[in-house]
């Protein structure tokens, strides 16, 4: 194992973590402000990826596709919020889980209806293709590096939005006291739609960015959604800071576990067995991490309303 390989896996972990953050940020915001658990968040990720692939294949421009993914996912989010989600805020979590599970069925099967069962392919844009040389002799794909930069930029942007703008003040006020900000004359229904569309747009952006390195297919959002749940359980529901920390932790632990565990087992085991045991254990690692965090802090590391 060389230093370069180790550094490359580390960067992959950060990249994976930041994409999880784009998903987890929306989920945790929607939960924090509206008290809603949204299983259909993964569907918005898928909508973003499909919109990007369709527009990029049609126009030939990845960048137009990226814009389309944001717009399509945010629009889908706003429509879903107005038609369905709005009726669920005062319901219990069970109703929310079921209704959003129903939305997943509708989104997944609807997408399959429109685009067919075969995965779409989305190429990395010309400008960002090829590797780039980093210190320590690391050759790293430029596109993945760009994803890391975009991920951090979004994280900073989100922080500024919530900490410094009027909209951010309203969102924070909505988190602490819904009835009071409605009484102060703020259109709470509109605010909810905006927050939901914001979260949806971030999920769509993540879907489009990841779509270019994996394939764009129905059901692609669901594994990411469940990882995003793990992230916000670790980070604390409702906390953006927790979501960022949790995402990076989960991204790094998962990537490094898949890389290091088989390698470690090979030191004292026969190689084929080491690979199978190592990878089986690596796939469970983040859930074990989650269990450990729960033992120490049942409300997550950065719980917003502890």
């Amino acid at each position: 194992m060389t230093v370069a390989l180790f550094a490359e896996q580390l960067l992959n972990g950060v990249q994976f973590g930041l994409m999880l953050f784009l998903m987890a940020a929306g989920l945790t915001l929607v939960f924090g402000v509206m008290g809603l658990i949204n299983l259909a968040h993964g569907s918005l990720y898928m909508v973003g990826a499909f919109a990007c692939a369709a527009v990029a294949n049609f126009t030939g421009s990845f960048w137009l596709g990226l814009g389309a993914s944001l717009a399509a996912a945010a629009a889908a989010g706003a429509i879903v919020e107005i038609v369905v989600i709005r009726r669920l805020y005062n319901r219990d979590h069970l109703d929310q889980v079921l209704a959003t599970f129903a939305l997943i069925l509708i989104f997944s099967e609807g997408t399959r209806w429109v685009f067919g069962s075969f995965p779409l392919y989305l190429n990395v844009p010309e400008l960002l293709s090829g590797p780039v040389s980093l210190p320590l002799g690391v050759e790293y794909p430029l596109y993945r590096l760009a994803i890391i930069v975009i991920g951090f930029a979004v994280a900073i942007g989100l922080y500024l939005l919530i900490a410094k703008t009027r909209l951010g003040i309203r969102i924070r006020a909505g988190e602490s006291d819904r009835a009071m900000i409605a009484a102060l004359g703020i259109d709470i229904r509109f605010l909810y739609t905006v927050v939901f569309a914001l979260g949806a747009g971030l999920a769509g952006l993540a879907g489009a960015l990841v779509g270019a390195i994996q394939s764009v297919q129905v059901g692609m959002g669901e594994p990411v959604l469940i990882l995003a749940f793990v992230v916000i359980v670790i980070g604390g529901i409702g906390s953006i800071k927790g979501a960022l920390f949790g995402s990076l932790l989960v991204g790094l632990v998962d990537t490094m576990g898949r890389f290091l565990l088989p390698w470690t087992f090979k030191l004292f085991m026969d190689p084929s067995q080491a690979t199978s045991i190592g990878s089986a254990l690596a796939s469970m690692l983040i859930y074990i991490l989650m269990a450990l965090v729960l033992v120490a802090k049942p409300k997550g590391l950065f719980s917003a309303n502890a």
């Binding site: 939960f31 658990i37 979590h93 889980v97 469940i226 749940f229 793990v230 916000i232 359980v233 529901i237 199978s276 990878s279 089986a280 796939s283 469970m284 859930y287 074990i288 989650m290 269990a291 729960l294 033992v295 049942p298 409300k299």
Partner: peptide, 28 residues
């Protein structure tokens, strides 16, 4: 583990543990 929590945490944690067993079954 999961009954230490309640509400929406419980939903997500039971889901996550089930997913853990699912991935184990796939990769074993």
């Amino acid at each position: 583990f999961s009954l230490r929590t309640s509400g929406v945490y419980f939903i997500m944690i039971t889901l996550a543990f089930a997913q853990m067993i699912y991935y184990f079954a796939i990769s074993w």
